Amino acid sequence: MAPILAIIELLRKGITPAFYWPVKFGIYTTATTYILSIITGNVSQVDRVWTFLPTIYTAYFALLPLWPKESPLPLLPYTPADVFPDVAQNYSARALLMLGLVVIWMFRLSYNTWRRGLFSLNDEDYRWAVLRQKIPPWFFQVVNLTFIAITQNIILFLLAVPAHIAAFQQPSQLSVSDYLLGSLALVDLVFEFTADNQQYSFQTYKQTGVINQNEWPGARIQWTPADAKRGFVTRGLWAWSRHPNFLCEQTFWVIITLFPLLAPEFPKLPAKPLSEITAFWPLTPAIVICMLFFSSTAFTESISLSKYPTSYKAYQQRVSMFVPFLTPVWGFLLQIQGKKDQVDAMLFGTDAATCNWFATLFISAYR
């Protein structure tokens, strides 16, 4: 306990006052998830709190006027007395809007995590089991400490930095950029929820062979035995992007990052309380989340490629990893090579124009 308190005190001397509590909370969360991973032998402890921590940090910054000046109990939030007075006394409409969007994001991710069983203390992300087999046990423990426990907790904290900046901007009212970005974020979450549901619907059919007619709208796809035999989903949004859920996840946090950056008040921020972060951090949340998902996706695809070497390689050639607008380009290149019909038949069960947006996403999804 003493070393943790010493680290907290050291960090307090070099950070803005509004970061005192989040940094303290993050250190304890990091230590807890790491210790639990050692005790249980299950390194998915961070995965179980991933759905909540960005919301907790964002809520702290958006609700700074709500918290007491001193913490009544250990780890309960508080607003230090030396936080910039306007921020400690007035709510930021922009930060509150961002909090609302992050709460919706939390409910979506928590629901998807719950139905997949990942809240169970016995469940572990399948990728960690694969990684264990590829590297020595001692090195896996190094990865567990440095990346799984420490780095991921830092990333979860960084996702709330835009709300921190927005809280200090103190806009008198929401701007056009706020309404535009808020609308885009909601649309993005709808697409991400749809991608989640399509994947879950496919995996359920793959395991049971039964089509659930009560799926969410957008996921009512008439799966076939050929789809199950292929082993991975290639219909709906997945006909346009190999990872539409990952694309939407990155896009959501890019949008959140842009809220304070596109606001009329940026960069008109109070210099003293934000001097430590304004020069470096505004773009950090978007950059780190995209770096994380790119590396994670590459690893995930290496696993899929080892399981389905022929069909998944064809999928990589036919469908873009993230950006849907590139998928027609990949199809055109395959057409030039005379391979498109063969690849389409392998992936979609037809050599027709299966990637038509309306036919794939809406007609097949709702019939």
Rank of each mutant, 00 (worst) to 15 (best):
L158V: 12
A93V: 08
Q141M: 04
A219M: 11
R367Y: 09
T297P: 00
L156V: 11
P171R: 02
W21K: 05
R116W: 01
T284A: 14
L131M: 15
A95V: 06
W114V: 03
I27E: 05
L64P: 00
I148K: 09
L237Q: 09
A359I: 13
Y34P: 10
P217K: 15
Q133I: 12
P65D: 01
L99A: 03
P171M: 02
Q335W: 15
V103C: 09
A298H: 07
P74W: 05
L145C: 09
F348Y: 15
Y315N: 00
A31R: 12
W238I: 03
P309D: 03
S275L: 03
I8Y: 13
F140M: 07
L76P: 00
F119V: 07
D125K: 09
R220M: 10
L347W: 06
R220G: 13
V233K: 10
S183H: 03
P77V: 00
F358V: 15
F252E: 04
Q207G: 04
T204N: 13
V87Q: 03
T51G: 01
L174I: 03
I256W: 11
F294P: 01
A195P: 02
P136W: 03
K24P: 00
V176W: 09
K24N: 05
F157G: 07
V83Q: 01
W240S: 08
T251D: 03
A228V: 07
Q45V: 14
Q213T: 11
L131P: 09
P225H: 01
M321I: 05
N122A: 11
G209L: 06
P3V: 08
R12Q: 10
L99F: 05
V43N: 13
G331A: 13
A185W: 11
V130N: 09
K229Q: 12
D351M: 13
W253N: 10
L97Y: 00
I289P: 04
